[in-house]
Amino acid sequence: MAGPTIHRFEANGPGGKGLEDWGDIPVASLVSGTPHQNGHSYVNDETLGFKAGVWDCTAMTGKMEPYPCHEFMVVLEGSVTMIEENGRETTVKAGESFILPKGLVCQWKQPGYIRKFYVIWDDPGGAAPKDAKALKVLKPDPKGKLEPAAATAPELLLSGNPVQHSHDWFTDPTGQWSVGVWDSTAYHRKAMPFPRYELMSLLEGAVTITDDKGQVHRFKAGDSFFIEQGAVADFKTDGYVRKFYCIFQPKKAAAKSEAAE
């Protein structure tokens, strides 16, 4: 059985072989449209209620109802307008990202075909937000202001100390699932088991990762990739790097985590 690994997210699934037929969206959840969907899950842990992959779908308008999970999405093609219960509308187009918190009352209005990368956590425990009325659609600003991040421990480095910044755009009520933007000057971290599940979508720069099997993974701006918790690999930037991140760190593992990329 294969252990934890690194996935390059591709719009057409692994190796560009195409997506699996996921059937029609149930009529009961729709206002209009006869949407048909396809997808591929790179990661799917039903016990944790966590999955990540690529999905596409034809036009539809869904019902106004509470969103069933926490979800971070990177739109690859098409657009969608999210309408909140208070009438606020947010349109997200190809090349943009957005976050839907679990429990947000909203309507999905998609005028045509759409394709996206996604990271979902349905939080089986159902933790309630501190203020449900404060929930809203979030569009992280890739160029927004960042705050200084905790320094990577020197014993984990094969390079000098980098200067790093980050900003969390959303964290779920339990603190296990978060989305934000992070940047760093050049650095090289030693090979170690990765302490969390993380999708990274590179905005600037390039990254080279070598896993414990000797396979070299290279990613550049515009690429998205996912590292599974426990995957053993190093992490080397070719210079300055900036990324979106979507992190899931189950509580049972959080206490053992190192503050490292």
Rank of each mutant, 00 (worst) to 15 (best):
V216N: 06
E77Y: 06
H167T: 11
R88D: 12
M82Q: 07
D45P: 11
G18H: 09
E228K: 00
I209R: 08
D56L: 02
F248L: 14
A186D: 07
L48C: 02
Y197I: 03
M82P: 00
Q107L: 01
P35N: 04
K102V: 02
S201L: 07
Y118M: 05
G175W: 08
L202K: 06
A127F: 04
D123P: 13
W182M: 13
L76A: 03
Y42D: 12
P250N: 12
F72D: 05
K139E: 10
K145H: 14
P142S: 15
P68I: 08
F117A: 07
H36C: 12
C57L: 11
I227F: 01
K17S: 11
C246V: 15
L158I: 06
P193V: 02
G230D: 00
A150E: 15
E198T: 08
P148N: 04
R218Y: 05
G95T: 11
E77A: 13
T91D: 01
E96D: 11
G87A: 13
G112A: 15
T210W: 05
A254R: 11
N86L: 00
I6N: 03
M64D: 06
S159F: 05
E261K: 05
W177S: 10
G62N: 07
G175Y: 07
F248P: 08
L157I: 04
S257R: 13
L30T: 13
V163E: 14
G49A: 13
D238N: 10
G205M: 03
K109S: 13
A259T: 10
E228N: 00
H70A: 02
A28V: 13
K145R: 14
F194I: 04
L104E: 06
T61I: 12
Q164P: 00
E147C: 01
A11V: 12
G23I: 07
M1C: 03
F235M: 05
S201P: 00
L48R: 15
A11Y: 02
E77Q: 15
P193R: 00
I227N: 01
L199C: 09
W55M: 10
E65W: 06
N12F: 09
K136P: 00
G3S: 09
E46G: 06
F50Q: 07
I99Q: 03
K145G: 01
K243T: 15
H167E: 07
N38K: 09
F72H: 14
I6V: 15
F226R: 01
A127R: 11
A127K: 13
L146E: 06
G222S: 12
E71Y: 02
A221I: 03
F170E: 09
T81V: 05
M192F: 10
T210M: 07
V105F: 01
R242S: 04
L146Y: 09
K256M: 12
H165F: 12
